[in-house]
């Protein structure tokens, strides 16, 4: 009589253990990216301490946190806002000009033959080399920085949107033409919806490029912003502070990238690939 009472919990134990094991595996699987990052930080920290790497060569994560805390919140917010302001202005300009330009290029053979080569030339010009000239021409203020950011971001938007617009199945266009739809409706209701996945993949790439553009511009001429702060910190050999600013830049890029993805998910859920729906 006793044996079943003893064996009962055993069997439930047996059942519970694999359950817990499975749950643990699930947690580990879900948190894998986070755990990997934490492990990397730990190795970084230990490596710096073990080999006594000076903070002006490679600061340990703890030194970077200290460096970040040594700067006032007000100062951080000021620099973040300056970089964000320039990035978003340049990015917005690139979207506002890039997408209509792409529509024009996709629909006019003449335009694509005349303008496209110019765009390729602009894209092939190393912006870093031209940046000082842009600053001299456009003077102080946000204008030159916005222009540099715009130049870096708009090309991927144009190219990708044109590709998307041209990916519209010709049969659809023929059908709409046979039904007497206007050119505007054709673009609005057929071509643009087909291009949405292409446009958003370009918007995602460009938003991270916008941050790069703002930083490049700040290296050349600026009084605030995270790029300026990195140049400024290294001029005093405050490398941990510069790394902290780098961390903030990466975070900013990631947040903007996710925001663009979220926008697509909310506004155009049908345009997502099946795996992401």
């Amino acid at each position: 009589m006793k044996s079943p009472t003893i064996s009962a919990p055993r069997s439930s134990d047996r059942r519970r253990w694999p359950d817990m094991g499975r749950a643990l595996l699930k947690v580990l699987d879900r948190g894998a990216p986070l755990f990997a990052s934490l492990l990397l930080l730990l190795i970084w920290e230990l490596g710096c301490r073990l080999f006594q790497v000076p903070s002006y060569l490679l600061p340990a994560p703890s030194a970077i946190v200290q460096g970040a805390l040594s700067v006032s919140l007000e100062s951080w917010l000021g620099h973040i806002w300056a970089t964000l302001r320039v990035s978003l202005q340049g990015y917005a300009l690139a979207v506002i000009i890039g997408i209509p330009l792409a529509v024009a290029l996709a629909n006019s053979r003449l335009l694509s033959r005349t303008l496209y080569p110019q765009l390729v030339i602009i894209q092939s010009t190393p912006i870093v080399a031209v940046a000082p000239i842009i600053v001299v021409v456009l003077g102080a203020g946000d204008a030159p920085r916005v222009a540099i950011t715009f130049l870096i971001t708009f090309f991927p938007i144009v190219v990708s949107t044109v590709t998307g617009l041209l990916a519209t199945p010709p049969a659809m266009l023929e059908l709409s033409r046979s039904l007497g739809a206007s050119r505007l409706r054709e673009v609005k209701n057929i071509q643009l919806p087909f291009a949405v996945p292409y446009i958003f993949s370009a918007l995602r790439i460009s938003v991270t490029l916008a941050i790069i553009g703002a930083v490049v511009a700040e290296f050349v001429a600026a009084e605030d912003g995270l790029g300026f702060f990195i140049a400024f910190s290294t001029s005093f050999f405050k490398v941990p502070q510069a790394f902290a600013a780098l961390g903030v830049l990466v975070t900013l890029s990631l947040v903007l990238f996710q925001l663009v993805s979220l926008t697509q998910r909310l506004l155009f859920p049908w345009s997502l690939p099946d795996a992401e729906k």
Binding site: P132, V135, V136, V137, G139, A140, V220, A221, E223
Partner: peptide, 21 residues
């Protein structure tokens, strides 16, 4: 007065010459 930071003496000469400062 508005204070800006140039990137070297020749940058200052250029910007004064072109009217940016």
């Amino acid at each position: 007065v508005e204070i800006n930071s140039g990137r070297g003496s020749s940058d200052v000469v250029t910007k004064l010459g072109t009217g940016a400062a």
